Structures are given as structure tokens and as C-alpha cells.
Computed example of a mutant assay.
Amino acid sequence: MFDHVKFGVRDYAASRTFYLQALEPLGVTIGGEGDPSYGIEICGSNNASLCLFQTGERTAPMHIAFVAQTREQVDAFHRAALAAGAKDNGPPGLRPKYHANYYAAFVIDPDGHNIEAVCHAAG
């Protein structure tokens, strides 16, 4: 639905490291990067990108969900995000209240955002 989402982070270096490490299991790449006030563009396989830049402002909490092709990618995302310093906000598992095959994991990023990886494929 979107081409890119860009938002400010309080600690650019920490957020850059966090997102690159946490999303590595989902196959992201760096599309471009400038100084921290410009930021970094982190690209997914579907041509959509997440862009981060340094800001002194506190942003409102967001929920961002990333597509995983497999449940193993969701598991790997969760492990990588925790290793990168995230707080657990829901371990990998089925969330049948959304639909029968909704397999997701949730973490809190360095700025307090709820970050999710979700796979909609059956088992």
C-alpha cells in the first residue's frame, strides 16, 4: 500500500543498528544513506522502504508490522530484535483472534514503538 514511511528517531546510531539487525532475517537492504539528519532508507523485497532520520523531537508511539514469508523468519526476527536490544512485547506464535494463520512476534524498539513481524501463510 505504501512506497515508504519516514520517521524520526532520538538515537540514530542505535535505531540504525537495531533495524538493520532486527530486520536482517526478513531480507532487507540499505537503499541509501546520508548524514543522520537525512537518515537511512531500509528496503524490503516488495520495493517498500522504511526511512529513519535523527530528530530531537519525541515521536508518538507507532505500531509497524513487517511481512515475513515464513514462520521461521518471524522467529528469526524476534531473536535478532532481542539480541539488538529490543524488549519483548509478544513472543512468536499464532494469533487466532486475527485469523487462523496469523503468526507474529512483537518487540519494542529503542524509541518505544511496537514492531511486529507477521506471516499469514498456513503452517
Results as ranks from 00 to 15, higher is better:
G112I: 06
T55S: 15
M62S: 11
G32V: 00
I108T: 15
F77G: 10
G85K: 13
H120D: 10
A81H: 05
A48T: 06
A80P: 15
Q54F: 09
E72W: 01
A100I: 11
S37P: 04
A22V: 03
G32N: 02
Q21P: 00
P92F: 07
A13D: 11
H4C: 11
G85A: 15
A121Y: 06
A81K: 03
F66I: 01
C51Q: 14
A83P: 03
Y38P: 00
A80Q: 15
I30Q: 13
E41Y: 12
G56W: 00
V28H: 01
G85S: 12
F53V: 00
G31N: 05
E72K: 07
L50M: 10
A14Q: 15
Y98R: 10
Q21E: 15
G56V: 02
K6W: 07
C119W: 02
N47T: 15
A68V: 04
A105M: 13
F18S: 01
A80C: 14
G123E: 14
A104T: 10
H78V: 10
N101P: 02
R71L: 12
A84Y: 04
F53N: 06
G90F: 08
P36L: 01
H78R: 05
Y102P: 15
A105K: 14
A104G: 11
L94S: 06
I64F: 15
G93C: 04
I115L: 10
G93S: 05
Y98F: 13
E57I: 05
N114H: 12
F106Y: 14
A13R: 08
L23F: 06
V107K: 09
A86D: 11
A14E: 15
G32L: 02
V28Y: 04
Y103D: 03
E72P: 04
S45T: 08
P36R: 01
V74M: 04
S49F: 06
I40M: 02
N89D: 14
P110M: 07
L26N: 00
F53T: 00
V9Q: 11
A121I: 11
I64W: 02
S37A: 07
A22S: 02
F53K: 04
S15L: 03
A76P: 07
P110E: 10
T55L: 11
Q73Y: 08
D3E: 09
V74A: 04
A65D: 15
P110N: 10
R10V: 09
G44D: 01
R79Q: 14
C43V: 11
I30P: 02
Q21M: 05
Q69I: 01
C43G: 03
A48M: 03
F53Y: 15
K6A: 15
V107M: 13
